[in-house]
Simulated scan of single mutants.
Amino acid sequence: MTGADEQETYPDGMRELIAARRRRRAALVYHPGESLPPLDADLDALTRRLVPDEEPAPLPAGHSSFARKRHELLPEFRGQPELCLLNALLISNLRKFTWPDHAPALFLRLWREKADFLTLRLSSRWLISSVITFAEHGPTEADRRVGQSMNVLFSLMKLYEYERQYSGTPSDEAFRIPGRAKGPLPMQMLGFQIVGGDLEANLLLDIVEQALDAPNAGALASALVDRLNRDPRTIFRRFALMRQRLEALRKARDGGEPAGEP
């Protein structure tokens, strides 16, 4: 019998994952008369024009995949400037293996000329999607690097935070100090020192330093790190709360002097 440690999470290795990714990233199809705005589109006009604040009409039979994607996005941007919807449509195209020729340049133009406008109006979800898009389409190595770092950070956070909900503990509530399950971490990793450890802080600081060097994606990445710092429902905030509790317990135990973590 094969031992649990010899079984594979993905029985076919990466082959099936690669095939599934290729299927998901098939290019959007445009029908005659459908297109993204041109590269020289009037962005100021798109900041003033609003997406209709109503349910979109049903799609006609035989609609294109581009029309379906736009129809899916419309409810999320009801009453918002059309520039926000355009940003989402560009991201939807640029996540595919191919896209309209001018889509990367138009996306970069949005974030060069309207970064402040978009950062103020977009949800964190769409800001994350935007900075991740720089991982493949950033015009400089620094932009691509910070985009990739943000992709890894928020993708792993999403996986972890969603799985954590099955513990029954709310996202803004730190785990109790006693009762930690004992056992090895995966991949022979060493444990994390809550008091005295700085792994989570250094992870964010590396991204902050990358953002300082990224001329196009840097301001967006910095804004997201600031939002992350203010969000009470993250692993970073919970570790801060646990650290405060441990330090208080150890001060009480040691007569006012914090002790190192065993």
Rank of each mutant, 00 (worst) to 15 (best):
P100A: 00
S64G: 15
Y10K: 06
A45R: 11
D5I: 15
L46K: 09
V51L: 11
L94D: 05
L74H: 07
L74R: 10
R70M: 10
A67L: 08
P37Q: 09
F66P: 13
R22M: 06
C84E: 07
R78Q: 15
P100G: 02
T98M: 01
E54V: 07
E76S: 13
L86R: 09
A103R: 03
T9S: 09
K69V: 10
A26F: 02
C84G: 02
A57F: 04
P38M: 13
D12A: 12
M14R: 12
A41M: 07
A26P: 05
R22Q: 13
L94N: 04
I91T: 02
P32D: 06
V29Y: 03
R70Q: 11
R25W: 00
I91C: 08
G62P: 12
R48H: 11
L28R: 11
P60H: 14
D53A: 15
Y10W: 15
P56T: 06
D101F: 00
G13M: 13
G79S: 08
N87L: 14
L90F: 05
H71I: 06
A41D: 06
R25F: 01
L59H: 14
S92C: 10
Q7A: 15
E54S: 15
N93E: 15
L86W: 02
S65F: 06
E54L: 13
W99T: 00
L85A: 08
A26V: 08
